[in-house]
Design a binder for these strands. Sequence first.
RNA 1: CGGGGCGUAGCGCAGCUUGGUUUAGCGCGCCUGCCUUGGGAGCAGGAGGUCGCCGGUUCAAAUCCGGCCGCCCCGACCA
Length: 571
Amino acid sequence: MRWTKAYIPTVKEDPAEAEIMSHKLMVRAGMIKKVGAGIYTLLPLGLAVTRKVEQIVREEMNLIGALELLMPVLSPAELWKETGRWDVYGAELMRLKDRHDRDFVLGPTHEEVITDLVRGRVRSYRQLPLTLYQIQTKFRDEIRPRFGVVRGREFIMKDAYSFNRDEECLDKTYRDMYGAYDAVFRRCGLRFRPVLADSGAIGGDVTHEFNVLATIGESHIISCPSDECAYAATDETAESVIEESTVDGSPAPLSETHTPRMKTVEEVCAFLKAESRKLVKTILYESDGEVVVALVRGDREISESKLRRVLKRDVLTMAGEATVRGFTGAEVGYAGPVGLKGARLVADKNVVKMANFITGANKTDYHLINVNAGRDFSPDVVADITVAASGDKCIRCGRTLTDYRGIEVGQIFKLGTKYSLKMNATYIDEKGVETPFAMGCYGIGITRTVAASVEQNHDDNGIIWPPPIAPFQVIITPVSTNDEAIMSAAEKIYSELCAKGIDVLLDDRDERPGVKFKDADLIGIPLRVTIGSRSLKQGKLEVRIRRTGEMQETPVEDAADRITQLLNEIS
RNA sequence: CGGGGCGUAGCGCAGCUUGGUUUAGCGCGCCUGCCUUGGGAGCAGGAGGUCGCCGGUUCAAAUCCGGCCGCCCCGACCA
């Protein structure tokens, strides 16, 4: 491609709306253009990178036997009602009506559509396992789109779905996918980490998230520093051993204390001059009309995903003020486990180890002191429902856990029979028995992967593409377009590289060299070939590596070979 | 959804408090010419704006008032 025939609108100044480097650089490099909040046009350069990532994904999917298809973006509400997700998915589901007032969904994921496709068409165990995937535009009505293409309302995603005979068969596909994901992100040149995660609205049991390490990442990860252990999970999912409570062990007499207008843990602690770890906070939730009371240590947070799992519920929301008042008989801020009736009481495993702690008294402006589980109340369930934090000990090896942040670029789920049962998707096994499919689903955020790569690969001058996903692998920069010797050398090397199948950009603009160098750096092409009279007099040109700034002189005659070789070295 | 901010040329911004003196300005970019050519040059000339939209106040509105729309940031219930 010649720059004068391309459309690469680079800009010098950072866009006003961008907060993070990848967003700024993608706009400045002429890759994306905002159309609306969380909605972007991919310009040619942005699309080129996206296609590279897609191609890598395709190759790895095909390698493990997955088959590509393309499902519609639009799907009828009936399918979503069949699995109950019409109600469960919530406000993030983009819904719309057609002219006949019928409900539709702009798909955020395609379990319903694919299961509908496969049921009735795949009838025999002989056809299994079957894994299908697509690379398609997805929609999510994000509460707050931000960070450019990292959290958009419309984005490109690869989603795969496997139909397996049983758990064992599913395990195999899941492992294959895990390997394929590892290969994809490795090939994209990313520093990433697979972690155990929560399955959220998708459902299912086992799931891993693939996170690209980045300080601006929105996923919080807890991991064991030990390489041999390598335990890693999202903070909501991670199991950990929390430092023992320091409250002493012999139960003291229960008493009530006046705590006027002290509602939050912080306020109560300050007022009673107690450490927050000596409190137990009591949070009311509602799930399918049932009220659930959850207890965790005052200095910790409740993991709603753990709680959902304990309760075996998909929907779980914090109770409204009216419910809290009705249930505790007190204003919000004074709930406690003692004397509460009619709700399931879930206590964190650390709470039952504590002694003489402080809780709300279920009476406005009062708290209880010296509360003890067992003596003063009895939890219905004791489980780990605390969000893990750095400083906790590893559940497996006991080392101290650390936290870091990541951009979630992929997630793989074992769904089991969740959808096949609800949608009556079955096959006939060897014994002639009708059996629901064991399913898995596997997603990769393509556009987000591109942004994550920029986030991880840039310097002060711009993007530094890993060669496998670079829009062009080589940029040729003739220092002057008016010098015939320079231009003929540039044309020669351009056609030689093209003939080798390398993606080359020839900067044939009549611009000053400084402008071209800056732009070449900004758009992040891994190798720059500079042709100027200085070295051309000796029959040489210069090859510069974007990432290191390292420069090599090479005779024009064998430059094409040398460049190819260098490309291999840095890939 | 709550709070804050913004909306003036393709991009980044000033002007608004104190309405008229601005023919609405500056930088970047763009066009023409000259000059220049190894890290975003210089000079000269030029094009480009319903001041987000609607309504109101006024002799007069980018500027004051009201409504609406859009965008950005922070927060979103841990009792």
